[in-house]
């Protein structure tokens, strides 16, 4: 048996230092995500919502969903930190660079960044 494990092509989940969530926990996490999604869709039916209000509600919910999927489903919370760094670097660059680009276009100017134009 030892020879077999020595030569197994793929590792056992080493690197997952902590135990991964159980199936039941995954289902719970999905329920939370689904609940947030219901809230998101709910904003569509608010008649008198302004864009600023919608951004204020929806963007935080989007970020929470993003973090939950990346952290639990993609195991970033448990896995080797190098994965987190590589991915977050790309994400960070993307958000900052394109945020700046849209700012120079005056994309946010309708609200509070008027001064940058």
């Amino acid at each position: 048996m030892t020879t077999i494990t020595d030569n197994e092509p793929a590792e056992a989940p080493v690197g997952h230092g902590h135990d991964l969530p159980s199936d039941a926990q995954y289902v719970k996490i999905t329920l939370i995500l689904a609940f947030i999604t219901v809230l998101e869709v709910g904003t569509y039916f608010i008649e008198e919502a302004t864009t600023t209000l919608l951004v204020g509600i929806l963007v935080p919910m989007m970020i929470v969903k993003f973090l939950i999927v990346a952290g639990y489903f993609m195991h970033l919370k448990y896995d080797n930190p190098i994965f987190r760094r590589v991915f977050l670097f790309g994400l960070f660059l993307s958000v900052v660079v394109f945020g700046v680009m849209l700012t120079t276009f005056g994309f946010f100017s309708s609200d509070f960044l008027q001064i940058l134009r």
Binding site: D6, E11, V14, G15, N80, G90, L93, S94
Partner: peptide, 25 residues
């Protein structure tokens, strides 16, 4: 196997994460 690499993680998984970082852009 498993720990042949310097970081102890497999090449393919790391490559996937690097690729996903790139896909963010």
């Amino acid at each position: 196997h498993g720990h042949a690499t310097s970081t102890g993680i497999s090449n393919t998984k790391l490559a996937m994460w690097v690729y996903l970082g790139s896909d963010c852009l």
